[in-house]
Design a protein around this nucleic acid. Structure first.
Length: 262
DNA sequence: ATGGTGGAACATCCA
């Protein structure tokens, strides 16, 4: 089984690339973030024509997550238990959707950006990650043999090797100690980075800002991850970051991250 | 090895 995660930065503006990625990589499952549309706006037909089903969750033009699968979509769940809301009044955002595909519980996750250190959105980000850790820890406690994938845009560069310049990011979000600790807590709960063994750094990224020629200058960040429970991790036979997909007109600012299971 | 951001309610916000 081949599973990928991708921050697509608008499904409506990228649907042709999504179908092409599904076919080029012979994907069974594609987890999307930043679909940026309501469910009724989601372009389902091109995916149906390609043989895929979709479970989507979008409330407005912001955020939005989806799971595309040609291997089943069971027990679809919107949001994880305990997921925090944001704003005044606090509203639950479209940042998490889960489903079971052929015995694998997959989650498409769009971690809050944080905006600036000290901003309410930064506290929200840390709380969201802590609650995700709690939920995921509970799933493993319930069944230590569960095959669980936590994949998506984590908006965290876990180590200095994961940014093009430590100096550039000093004092900015994505690299602060609390964010890195929150990410590490999920790993420590039993969810390993499934991709890193197959895509070692430094200088290996999943995101490049649209501005300042960041991509051709190879100035990116590794912020998109597929983490897996022990039972899932032992099934991984290959993984890669599709850097080619970041090239050309109409690219997302994120690259797809792919995992192959036996 | 790409083209000086891009996407969305098209005003600004968000990333």
């Amino acid at each position: 089984m081949r599973i990928a995660t991708w921050n697509v930065n608008s499904i409506r503006s990228r649907i042709d690339r999504v179908v092409e990625v599904l076919q080029r990589h012979d994907l069974d499952v594609l987890l999307l973030q930043e679909t940026k549309c309501r469910d009724d706006q989601f372009p389902v037909l091109p995916l149906s024509a390609a043989g895929y089903d979709v479970a989507m969750h979008g409330l407005n033009q912001w955020n939005g997550v989806a799971i595309i699968s040609r291997a089943g979509l069971d027990d679809v769940e919107v949001g994880f238990p305990g997921m925090p809301a944001y704003g005044d009044p606090a509203v639950s955002e479209a940042r998490a959707i889960g489903a079971t595909v052929d015995g694998v519980r997959v989650w498409s996750l769009y971690v809050p950006n944080g905006r600036e250190v000290g901003h309410p959105h930064y506290a929200y980000k840390l709380d969201w990650l802590a609650k995700l850790r709690d939920a995921a820890q509970g799933w493993l406690a319930d069944d230590g043999d569960a095959q669980i994938m936590l994949a998506g845009d984590w908006n965290i560069a876990p180590t200095d090797d994961d940014v093009w310049s430590v100096e550039f990011f000093e004092g900015k979000t994505h690299v602060t100690a609390p964010e890195r600790a929150a990410f590490r807590a999920v790993v420590d709960a039993g969810f390993a980075d499934l991709v890193r063994p197959y895509a070692p750094g430094p200088g290996v990224y999943t995101y490049w800002d649209y501005t300042q020629l960041r991509f051709p200058k190879r100035q990116g960040m590794r912020i998109d991850f597929a983490l897996g429970s022990p039972a899932l991790a032992e099934r991984v036979t290959h993984a890669e970051i599709d850097r080619e997909e970041r090239k050309g007109k109409g690219a997302s600012d994120h690259a797809p991250v792919l995992v192959t299971l036996d």
